[in-house]
Every structure is written in structure tokens, then in C-alpha cells.
Computed example of a mutant assay.
Amino acid sequence: MYDILLQIPVIGMPVEDFALLLITALAGGAFGAALGALPAFIFTGFVVFLGEGVAILQRELTGQVEAVPAGELAVGITGVIGFGAITGPHIAFAGGVAASAYAGKKYPEMEPDGWDYHFGKNILYAFGTKPDILAVGAIFGTIGMLITQVGNGIFINVLGMTPPTDFIAFSVFATAFLARPAFGYPLVGKPNGSGFLDMSPFEREEPRTATDGGEVPLEHKGRLATEPWLPHQYKWSGVTAIGLIGGILGGYIYIQTGSIFLGYAISAISLLFLNLGVEKIPVTHHITLIGAVGAVVFLPVAGSVVALIAAGVFGAVSGLLGELTQRLFYSHSGTHVDPPAMAIAIAMFVVAVLSIAGILPNAGYL
């Protein structure tokens, strides 16, 4: 009875453990703001890579088959640190994204030379030790943790069912959307050209114009009318191609190692080169992860070759979802809303629904 009274409702976590998580999430969000959102996410990749490597070694030594407990992303280093309160994307990356949104309005003079988009979209920028920016990161990192814990808790502990999506990915873009009205940005923005999906204003290098016929606000002067998430990765054909490739690689890694998240980790680590300024490095963590899910879904019922082909298809679909969501929600406002997170959340929602309906044999890592 004493233990039950000390449980947090819905979340199903002892009060002391929740307090530990809450305090660490505050620090993790601030850590993401200090390092910058993208550098913090690259650390996610390194930690998950380490955790999955250790897990693979343990399985080789013990002969255990990969098994992810219901509601858990992974175990050990991967789950507690990589996807946990220290480098979890819903905490550290989310804190960094919110910090950039805040600084874009509060400190436009901090914008580095050579950054062409609104400063609120600069997720490469490390904000160091500025207290108010770190506080923003801490608050939004904590919100991301709460969304994830409550979301999973409702479905697992209250409804007794598989979560209908990846709540880490969901909270990454939910906190980013929350930051927009919180700091004075339009929630979606007004498209230029022929609509939300039209990237031709970017290709023509059309400048931003005032929506009311007056002067363009100072923060937008000289900026492009449409700002694609990745100038080197937005054409449908190229996105499909890298989706197929990344999906197959993520699927193959799972088939050979039993790790769903190792391909994701490698993709995240590869972004170090993008952060260092190497041009045209593709962003693929949403592709390799969902590709691995395709292999997880089809391997038990169709064999490795079909599973690998399914992984390529799943990866391509996830890549296209990322491109679709960036055109709808990233390109026309002034802050970063993460297309890979939106793609993962949507893809895993579909997988979960099809699994619940009995169409797919399992729900991947959910």
C-alpha cells in the first residue's frame, strides 16, 4: 500500500524516481540549449551507438534474442541516457530548438554571418552559458519529457495497450510548435508561390514580402520567401532515392544484429559532418529507423529478403513524409519544427494502427 501511494498517477512511476527524472530533464533541456539542438542530437547518436553496441555484445555472450519491453525504446545505455533525460531528443534537442526560437526574437544580433534563414531556425548554434536561454531550454526539455511520460503512461498504464505512436518523436515536434506562439512566431506561416508544397520561390530566390502591403519586418529583410528544411534534400526524386537506400541499410543492420536503433545512431552521428559545414550530407535518421521497423515487421513472416525490400519501402515512405511535413510546417515560418520527428511519429502511428487491426504482425519497437 505504501508503494502504491508513492506512485505518480498515469505515469506509474515512484515519486522519487519522477523527481529524479524531472530534475535531470531540466538540466538536459538546458544542456541542449548550451550545445545547440543539432550538436546535442549528434550526442544522442553517439550514446545510442554505444548502447546498442553493448546490447549486441550482451546478446552474443548470453544468446538472448532481441526483445524490447512494451513501452520501452530499449534498455540500458540506450534507453536511460540516449533516449532518456540527458541526450533524449525530446529533452536535449527540444530544448535546443526552443532556445533558437527564443534567441531569434530576443537576440537577433547573435545571428552568425552566413546564416541565410531566420535565426530562429538555426539549430547549429551553441548558446553557451546565457542564463535566460538555458532556462528556456530547461523548460521546454521538461515539457518534452512530460509529454512523453504522460503519453506512454496513458496507453500503457491506464488503457493497457501499445502506444499508438513514438511519443519521443511526437514530443519533439509538439514542443517546437508550442515555441512558435510562445515566442511570437506564426504557427504555420503563410506560403508563397502556389501553396504550401511549392518550393519554386526558393529556386527562384524570391525575397520575402510584407503580407499587409507595408514594410517587411526587420528580422525578415533580405530573407527568402520560402526556406526549405534542407536545400540539398527537398526534391521528391532525391528524397525517394535516399529513402530507399537508407531504409535498406537500416533494415540490413537490424537483420544482422537484432538492433532496431543502430542504423538510427549511425545516421545521427553522420550529422556531425553537416554541423561542421560539409555540404549535402543527407539527413537519414528517420529513414534508417523506419527502415529497420519495416524489417522488424516483415522478418518473422516473410524472411530476410522480403524484409529487406520492405525496409527500403518503409524508408522511402518515411523520407517522403519528412519532405511533406517540412513543406507544410517548416518552410513558411521562422523556427525549426523537425521533419524527421514528424515523419517518425506519423509512420509509427500507421504501423501501430495496422498492428492493432491485425494487418501487421507487430508494431515494431512500440
Rank of each mutant, 00 (worst) to 15 (best):
D3I: 10
I11T: 13
E16G: 07
L20Y: 12
L38D: 02
A40D: 14
E52C: 11
A55S: 14
R59Q: 09
E60N: 10
G63W: 05
A70N: 06
G76L: 08
I77D: 00
I81D: 00
G82P: 04
G84P: 02
T87Q: 04
G96S: 05
G96R: 08
K106T: 11
E109A: 15
M110C: 03
P112S: 11
G120F: 02
G128E: 01
L146F: 09
T148P: 12
N152L: 00
F155N: 05
M161W: 01
T162L: 04
D166C: 05
I168Q: 13
A169R: 01
A179M: 10
V188S: 08
G195Y: 04
M199K: 04
P201L: 06
E205C: 08
V216D: 02
E219G: 00
G222D: 09
L230P: 00
L230S: 09
P231V: 15
Q233R: 11
K235I: 02
S237F: 11
T240Y: 13
T240V: 06
G243P: 00
G250R: 05
I253Q: 03
Q256H: 13
T257F: 08
Y264M: 10
I266H: 04
A268P: 03
L271W: 11
N275L: 10
E279K: 15
I281W: 00
I287S: 03
V293T: 15
G294F: 01
V297S: 05
F298T: 12
P300W: 09
V306S: 02
L308M: 11
G319K: 10
G322M: 03
E323I: 05
Q326D: 07
Y330F: 15
H332S: 04
S333V: 01
T335E: 05
H336C: 11
V337D: 02
P339D: 07
M342P: 01
I344W: 00
I346D: 06
A347G: 06
V350W: 09
A357H: 01
G358A: 09
I359K: 03
N362L: 08
L366C: 06
